[in-house]
Amino acid sequence: MASGSSSPGAGRFLTGVAWAVLLLGLWLWGRQITNGPELSSGPKTGDVAAVGRPLGVRLPPAHDPLKGAEPRRVEIPSVGIAAPIVPRGLDGHGAVDPPSFATPNTVGWFDGGTRPGAAGAALLVGHVDTDTRKAVFYSLSAVRPGEKVRVTATDGSITEYTVDDVQVFQRSHFDAKKAYGPREHGRAELRLITCGGSFDRTAQAYTANVVVSAYLTGVPKG
């Protein structure tokens, strides 16, 4: 999704504003993201538009949580995403500091929270675009329930997740617990997050955020 600006460098600024709004909930919610209540993964209406779980999609059982490991790479074959992961903390405003625009095809992992594979929801964030081109999570909104996400850790271990929910949260009614909290207590989950919706020229930001939820279903060999 393009930023909708013709001014040089404006796309970087506008997308950056969207990031600040998207992840402000982490600052408000603090480090409680791994201990939130169980949340339904069914389709939502009203302020939250969702792809949800289409009828007829059979999802596999969850794999038991693991110790978890620092992630190095993420792949979503169905939409052609394959990218390195770098750890990211919080910036001066209390929001997750996203990867640099100099490396738009890099995904950030919030290293103050859950490690992929461990119980709780691990957060992976990526830009949707820059001022000149598409970025790593440009196609994230095309992901559908039942599709696979694979994470390779720095120790060489691999964990595989199945997407069970895709939601588009409006910025004006962004609910941090619904976006970041575990959908089922004790389950190892992922959240993959980027900007979405349309571009609001008045607010100089995107109007929504795409949040893909997936849960651990396998531990492939090599």
Rank of each mutant, 00 (worst) to 15 (best):
A208M: 10
A176D: 12
Y215D: 00
T217W: 02
D47A: 12
R53A: 08
V86H: 01
G80S: 04
L24C: 14
R187A: 03
P8T: 11
A205P: 00
D165N: 15
K221V: 14
G218M: 01
W27N: 12
L66Y: 05
I193F: 00
L24T: 09
T207Q: 05
S100Q: 10
T103E: 08
A188D: 03
C195E: 05
G218I: 02
T159M: 07
K178D: 15
S198R: 05
D64G: 02
P65L: 14
V136W: 07
L140R: 09
A69N: 01
V212N: 05
R115W: 04
G126D: 07
G156W: 02
G46L: 08
V128S: 08
V128M: 14
G30A: 15
L123A: 00
G94Y: 04
E38T: 14
A119P: 06
V163S: 06
L39A: 09
D111M: 15
T114P: 07
P60A: 12
H93L: 03
V79P: 01
R73T: 08
S141C: 08
D175H: 03
R31K: 13
P98A: 10
S198M: 11
W109H: 09
G25V: 05
V79A: 01
S213M: 08
W27L: 14
G120Y: 01
D111A: 11
D165Y: 05
H173M: 12
S141V: 09
S6N: 15
P116R: 00
V210E: 02
T194V: 03
P65W: 06
P61T: 07
G146E: 13
E147M: 14
V107W: 00
P37V: 06
P84A: 12
A203W: 04
P182L: 00
G9E: 10
A119M: 05
Y180L: 11
L55P: 08
G56A: 15
A95V: 15
D155C: 10
